[in-house]
């Protein structure tokens, strides 16, 4: 991903103003329609670039903040194996953040800029990570439901029109499946356990069900960016389509656990071959998005603290590299 090469072109400087912008845009759309991938140095409409920077960086921030609710349980995982699994999963999330930041950087933004936006509270991340994880069952529910919803969203992104984003998503999707299965297995163990364990699993499902459905974003009628993103083939399916698919996949999994989905309106529609579900409380979604969720402040504080705590390491590494480079320079000169 040739970020620096891209910067050296001076971004817009290389464009030939004599060429008709409309013609360039039509040619771009024709390439997208023909399922050709767009690569970093190709011409692209400014709005396409902006949309991708926003979406990819929000996605990256979500992976980074997403480490926090689960990281909470690393020291308290019930067995050594569970601890090792959870560390591996949280490490994956950090890796996913890194792949995605790299993809965003190919569009001409710097990593430092993106991280600043997150730490200053200017950037959004998935609202799901502002919910607390009070019990071990929450770790199971996150893997099963939150990662399950993420997979549903992410699989179509592997075919996104922007090459670096699509490639990052392929890598991420390969790893997500482990996350979902380990989460479901935690739920399975608990739901086959003691009455208290079953109750714990049910309570976690009750907590995570609706926030997971909200992960697909506002309904199609309300979605701000949906139609244009579909035209640009950044998005392949609408929010409501993906949400429906998630419900259809997940309800039988809950049945198998013997747990109750917390929705009195939920029923199977034989004619449509879909589950019908109750209305989503979007006011809650808005609240969390505006920063008034249960853990918004705590998450940002933890993130900033981690950044500050790591400062001396970054400074030491940079100083060491500068010293080595200076030494090599002297040896070459000698």
């Amino acid at each position: 991903m040739y970020t620096q090469g891209l910067d050296s072109l001076g971004k817009d400087g290389e464009r030939d103003p004599a060429r008709d912008a409309g013609a360039l845009e039509r040619a771009f759309q024709a390439r997208v329609d023909a399922e050709e991938k767009i690569e970093p140095k190709d011409w692209m409409p400014e709005a396409y670039r902006r949309t991708l920077v926003r979406q990819i960086s929000q996605h990256a921030h979500s992976e980074i903040v997403g480490m926090l609710p689960e990281g909470n349980w690393i020291t308290r995982a019930p067995t050594l194996l569970r601890k090792a699994i959870l560390i591996a999963k949280v490490q994956d999330e950090g890796g996913h953040g890194a792949y995605l930041y790299s993809a965003a950087e190919t569009l001409g933004v710097s990593r430092a800029e993106l991280i600043d936006q997150l730490l200053e509270g200017k950037a959004k991340y998935s609202s799901i990570f502002n919910y607390p994880t009070p019990t071990w069952a929450d770790v199971g529910a996150i893997g099963w439901l939150v990662d399950g919803a993420a997979i549903m969203n992410q699989i179509p992104l592997c075919r996104c029109s922007y090459g670096p984003y699509a490639r990052a998503m392929v890598r991420i999707c390969k790893e997500e499946s482990f996350h979902q299965r380990q989460g479901y297995e935690i739920m399975l163990r608990l739901s086959r356990g003691t009455a208290a364990q079953r109750q714990m699993a049910q309570a976690a499902l009750d907590r995570w069900w609706w926030p997971s459905l909200m992960m697909f974003g506002p309904s199609d009628a309300e979605s701000k960016h949906g139609a244009q993103s579909m035209r640009w083939k950044i998005k392949r399916f609408s929010n409501d389509e993906l949400r429906q698919k998630f419900v259809d996949f997940t309800v039988p999994q809950a049945d198998f656990l013997g747990l109750q989905v917390p929705d009195p309106a939920l029923r199977w529609d034989e004619a449509a071959q879909h589950y019908r579900f109750g209305a989503i409380d979007w006011s809650e979604f808005e609240q969390v998005l505006q920063g008034h969720g249960p853990c918004n402040r705590e998450r940002m504080q933890a993130r900033r603290q981690a950044h500050e705590d790591g400062r001396w390491v970054r400074e030491a590494a940079a100083a060491w590299a500068a010293k080595q480079a200076a030494r090599e320079g002297r040896e070459e000169a000698a």
Partner: peptide
């Protein structure tokens, strides 16, 4: 090629 990353050296 698998991707990119930042490093001091």
């Amino acid at each position: 090629h698998v991707g990119s990353l930042h490093a001091t050296d």
